[in-house]
Nucleic acid binder design. Structure first.
Lengths: 208, 208
DNA sequence: TGAAAGTGAATGGTCGTTCATTCATTATTT
DNA sequence: AAATAATGAATGAACGACCATTCACTTTCA
């Protein structure tokens, strides 16, 4: 079962939510669909079934809601791959595949239309909050780089700039939110296969 | 000489601009730096050296400015590669490299910070204008697909979904706007080399 | 003189946020 | 058990700020 990253551990086996959780859940949907600036407190409130003023009983301002969403989402992406770092018992290619699989599943698992909240949303955060999110993103990059570097040392991967590779992979996945359709030609699993294949083998033919 | 895509043919050998052109130029910079919604008519006007009301002597509204910018930018990306389509005299790998080179140069040529105007901006356009921009984007995709398909037929590339490849390549390039620094480790030329290499050969080593 | 360029003031709207207040529920005290 | 106090949830009204846009006007300049 695939669930929206933000509340992965929360959604399971739950039938009721606190108001705070409802606000986060609804805001997350709206932010992803319409964008942060284009979502008003009125939008959030009415999608929760009450008036804007009530939101301030649970969050001190709009930015805090965005921050909580981005933080939770980033944590959800990070959590399952933290253990991969420095684990010599796992093959770098397998580890890379796990990272891709996890990221794609969380990105496309529950469909939200086309907004790049994660790229754009950082701009609306305070310096302090922005720093915290970027720290998490850096940790993600670090894990990717470690896997890639080890893969090069072990001869699985050729010598290539691991930082650029990590950026490129993340870009492909992040932006697939914009066009991927669960009813389209490919399933999420097939898309994971494509990405891993594309990244590892490239597009060139060996038959010449 | 590398110039900002939007006014590629305009900036060359010009010392004076019409007010209309100044507005487009300044707006483009602001939109890329701060985002469309976050840029006010006051911002645009004061960066042009006059008052907001005067803008309406040249453009009927804010959206039209955005539309003109996106259209010009897309045209600039498209123009140099239109001739590649259906040209049997050029090798598909060379054609692909030309597409990448052109796109990267226009994307990173004149540095604008971190906003993904092109992805996000579509949401602010009217249906009619949105359709026009998407038509241009589709033409770009079509050219990429044609090159890739021909490359497969000729045995240069292995059998792979050309649509997904085109999306992936565009994603890598578009998102490099967010992190690429002209003062950083790599020059634009080196970055073009990396992308072409990464896309064609992948990361896997042949030595195992 | 007349068109083009530019302006200040005003309009109607939306936004995030604050605040005093209501109401039902829960906890505490008598 | 009854009376009282405290609390959390929710509200309507209002605030100040900013927004895109309009319009009647002055200025500029050919």
């Amino acid at each position: 079962m695939v669930v929206h990253s933000l509340f992965a551990e929360l959604v399971m086996n739950r039938t009721s939510y606190t108001t705070r959780e409802v606000i986060l859940l609804k805001s997350s949907i709206l932010f992803w669909e319409k964008g942060y600036a284009e979502t008003s407190m009125k939008d959030i409130a009415s999608s929760c079934g009450f008036r804007p003023a009530n939101i301030y009983n649970y969050f001190c301002n709009k930015e805090t809601i965005l921050f909580e969403i981005l933080k939770d989402e980033m944590e959800a992406i990070l959590k399952p791959i933290r253990k991969l770092k420095g684990d010599a018992s796992i093959n770098p290619p397998d580890a890379l595949r796990k990272i891709i699989e996890n990221h794609v599943r969380l990105t496309l698992g529950v469909r939200r239309s086309s907004m790049l909240l994660f790229d754009v949303g950082l701009g609306y955060l305070s310096k302090k909050n922005k720093k915290k999110i970027i720290q998490l993103r850096d940790e993600y990059d670090e894990i990717c780089r470690e896997i890639l570097t080890r893969g090069i040392q072990m001869g699985f991967f050729r010598k290539i700039d691991v930082k650029l590779v990590a950026f490129s992979v993340a870009s492909i996945i992040a932006r697939s939110r914009m066009w991927f359709s669960p009813n389209g030609k490919y399933s999420v699993d097939e898309y994971i296969d494509f990405i891993y294949d594309f990244i590892t083998r490239g597009i060139i033919s060996m038959r010449r």
